[in-house]
């Protein structure tokens, strides 16, 4: 005859995870007018040549439509150079009416593109983060836990980096009106 199974002793343990704050829903903004006369910030970090090329193309298209492009290259994030980057961003926020912040095509550059876009949104200005397809989920997660789940994300193909300028041009032209629509600007 089998002996009755001894019930296992139970122990109490503590849950090791933080209680992450509910994602706050900071508002996003729309321009709600024509792009002509608007100062449009274009942020890049000097790392991705593809995005620098797209930025140049968009700057030309914005000028064609009567807008004023205001390009910003962000620099280092730590040390004295990091202080300069933060000061540059603060000054840029004051100069622009709306912006696009890119390029998200790696882990940290996506995070910084999103954070710098949120910096614009926190000033009550329309903005989109330009993110390659592969990193869109990462961008949305980051925006959510930074309290801006509604941050507008302009999705670009992935990878852009190996494309020639001839291949990038139609992508830049195709996504320019998408960017304007995303921030609520009319041509």
């Amino acid at each position: 005859m089998n002996a009755p199974a001894t019930p296992k002793r139970r122990i109490t343990i503590r849950r090791p995870t933080a209680d992450f704050a509910q994602d706050r829903g900071a508002p996003s903004f729309e321009l709600g007018r024509k792009i002509a006369g608007v100062r449009v910030g274009i942020r890049h970090d000097g790392t991705w040549r593809s995005w620098q090329y797209v930025a140049r193309v968009w700057a030309e298209l914005l000028r064609r439509d009567g807008a004023i492009p205001v390009l910003l290259q962000t620099g280092e994030r730590t040390g004295p150079e990091g202080e300069k980057t933060r000061a540059d961003l603060e000054a840029w926020h004051g100069e622009i009416d709306c912006a696009v912040s890119g390029l998200g095509t790696c882990g940290s550059c996506t995070m910084w593109s999103v954070r710098d876009a949120i910096g614009v949104e926190a000033k009550g200005k329309p903005v989109a983060a330009a993110i390659c397809e592969e990193f869109v989920g990462h961008a949305r997660t980051t925006a959510s836990f930074l309290g801006h789940p509604e941050l507008k994300v302009l999705v670009l193909p992935y990878p852009l980096e190996t494309l020639s300028e001839a291949e990038l041009l139609p992508i830049a032209e195709e996504h320019y009106p998408k960017f304007l629509a995303l921030i609520g600007a009319a041509r």
Partner: peptide
Amino acid sequence: LTSPTLEIDD
């Protein structure tokens, strides 16, 4: 301690 608890088999 204030963290949530769980009871499990030892």
